[in-house]
């Protein structure tokens, strides 16, 4: 039954990715964060997670290894009326491309759906096997 752990681990990982994308989009205009400075775009990095004690089985789940901050520099716009503007009237804004985030979100969604499908198919196979010999 370890196969369900594989699919579940992937669902979990894709969900974390989706949360990260949502917070990127929500903070596309955030100029001030707790750490100071504008919001930094986040990205998730996946890595393989073996889910079985039997190495011959080749069951490989996935986990989020880390959530990394993007190293793109913030963009500067001129807006003297902004409360976070410096003495020259420039404001640092996070460099977030909403279209890029949308594409990322769709890919996360497709991957999530594929994993749901894998889960259901594995379940269907086990159920079918349980019907063996029943009349």
């Amino acid at each position: 039954m370890d196969i369900f752990k594989v699919s579940a681990s992937a669902l979990e990982a894709q969900r974390i990715r989706m949360n990260t994308i949502a917070s990127n989009m929500a903070n596309a205009q955030t100029t001030k964060t707790g750490a100071g400075g504008p919001y930094v775009r986040k990205d998730v990095v996946f890595s393989v997670m073996p889910v079985t004690s039997n190495p011959a089985e080749k069951l490989e789940g996935v986990k989020v290894r880390e959530v990394v901050g993007d190293n793109k520099p913030p963009i500067t716009i001129y807006d003297p009326g902004h409360p976070d503007a410096d003495e020259n009237g420039n404001v640092s804004m996070p460099d977030i491309n909403v279209i890029e985030e949308m594409v990322n979100m769709m890919m996360a969604l497709r991957a999530y759906e594929a994993n749901v499908r894998a889960f259901n198919m594995s379940k269907g196979m086990y159920q079918k096997a349980l019907e063996l010999g029943r009349q």
């Binding site: 196969i3 992937a10 080749k58 490989e60 991957a111 894998a118």
Partner: peptide, 9 residues
């Protein structure tokens, strides 16, 4: 299933 889980790894 492992391949699908790791499609973005």
């Amino acid at each position: 299933a492992s391949n699908i889980a790791n499609s973005d790894t």
